[in-house]
C-alpha cells in the first residue's frame, strides 16, 4: 500500500484529505505543520505528500526545500494543496520541486486526477 503524508494546519482539511486518500487506498499519516512533516519524513519517507502552503512554524515551501535535502527526499511526489491560486505561486512551487499543484477548494475528483498525473494511481 502506498503512503501519503497529509500536511495542513486545519484539522478539518486533514480529515477530508485523509478520507479521500484512504478511498484511493493510501496509507495516511498527518502532520500539522512543515516541521512536524519533516519529523515524519525522517522516520519513514512517504510515497506522496499533500502539502498546504500557509502554516505556522514551517510553511509548505520551506518544508519542500528541506525535504528535497533529506536522504531519499527526492523520492516522494509532492502535491501542493493551497488557497494560493495565482500563477506566480504555482511557478514558485514547481521551481522548488513540487510535482503537482491543487488550488483549493478541492474535491476527490481533483485529487484523483492530480495523483494519477504524478503516476501514483
Amino acid at each position: 500500500m502506498k503512503s501519503c503524508l497529509v500536511v495542513d494546519d486545519s484539522r478539518v482539511i486533514r480529515m477530508v484529505a485523509r478520507k479521500i486518500m484512504e478511498e484511493l487506498e493510501f496509507d495516511v499519516v498527518e502532520a500539522e505543520d512543515g516541521q512536524a512533516a519533516i519529523d515524519c519524513c525522517n522516520q519513514v519517507m512517504p510515497d506522496a505528500v499533500l502539502l498546504d502552503w500557509h502554516m505556522p512554524v514551517m510553511d509548505g515551501l520551506e518544508f519542500l526545500y528541506a525535504l528535497r535535502q533529506l536522504p531519499g527526499g527526492e523520492k516522494p511526489k509532492v502535491v501542493f494543496c493551497t488557497t494560493k491560486n495565482d500563477l506566480e505561486h504555482i511557478q514558485e512551487a514547481i521551481k522548488a520541486g513540487a510535482d503537482e499543484y491543487i488550488m483549493k477548494p478541492f474535491d476527490s475528483e481533483i485529487i484523483q486526477s492530480k495523483f494519477s498525473q504524478v503516476g501514483l494511481l
Partner: peptide, 15 residues
C-alpha cells in the same frame, strides 16, 4: 473555471 482547469490538465500545461 478553477475547477475545470484542475480536472485532467497537468499543472505544467496550465502554466
Amino acid at each position: 473555471t478553477q475547477f475545470e482547469v484542475q480536472r485532467g490538465l497537468p499543472i505544467a500545461m496550465l502554466m
